[in-house]
Design a protein around this nucleic acid. Sequence first.
DNA 1: GTCATTGCAAATGCTTTGCAGTGCC
DNA 2: GGCACTGCAAAGCATTTGCAATGAC
Lengths: 137, 137
Amino acid sequence: MSDLLERLRGRGWRLTAQRRVVAEVLDGDHVHYTAEEVHALAAERLPEISRATVYNTLGELVTLGEVIEVSTDGRAKRYDPNAHHAHQHLVCARCGTIRDVHPSGDPLADLPTRERYGFAISAVEVTYRGLCPDCAA
Amino acid sequence: MSDLLERLRGRGWRLTAQRRVVAEVLDGDHVHYTAEEVHALAAERLPEISRATVYNTLGELVTLGEVIEVSTDGRAKRYDPNAHHAHQHLVCARCGTIRDVHPSGDPLADLPTRERYGFAISAVEVTYRGLCPDCAA
DNA sequence: GTCATTGCAAATGCTTTGCAGTGCC
DNA sequence: GGCACTGCAAAGCATTTGCAATGAC
């Protein structure tokens, strides 16, 4: 919780009310909010916070590696605070909800060297798409 | 090639010059163009084609399952004409190039039922991110 | 006190939409 | 000839940017 704020302060972050509120919103539940949703939740605590600041702060958190940016559809990006544990995503095709899952295998193992075309691979993302229980009904 | 046009005609598609040109652009190389790029290439052959029509046509091709929509970053979506063969993507983090790869295993096998949280999974996308040989240099 | 950070509002990039005209079937 | 399809221009989101005011250090 304040682990996150500690780490950020340690990296020379100037700690403002806006940044703290954004960090707190992300640090709460492990949901995957859009920038708009983060702004709305942040504004509940700090009504004057601007969208631009939310975008700036989210961008910094991504750069610092504290948060992962997920673009599962062509719509708004979502921000995943669970950056420190390898995991993959289950995405609902209807409502866009994202859920973290922890599969067993290493997806990189399925890609033989000759299929890598000289790329230096640094990350693998796996997205399972389907309908969540609510939308399937 | 005209396989695609055949199939579309068979599904009751009204075949216009615009649609044919868009289909031809996608049917050529197995690159992954943005809507803007498709429009530019289509306009080389049919100068008056409008962006709206390109978007409409791409949307229809996606709905019909002939083309896959890929959003690898938060920027423009790309359209992948290689919809009939299961494959995955190698994405360059620097230049955005996408390359098709063909996995050995079934990624769905790695996700045990208890990790599916009641989702009815219909597709799995795997994206390998890294630097392509050109950008690594 | 300095300078990073904020807020506003306007700008941008991508995509969709409304509607009159066009042309495929 | 009917009605699906097109083009244009305008609207719609999500996001970024410029710049003056603010406030953390």
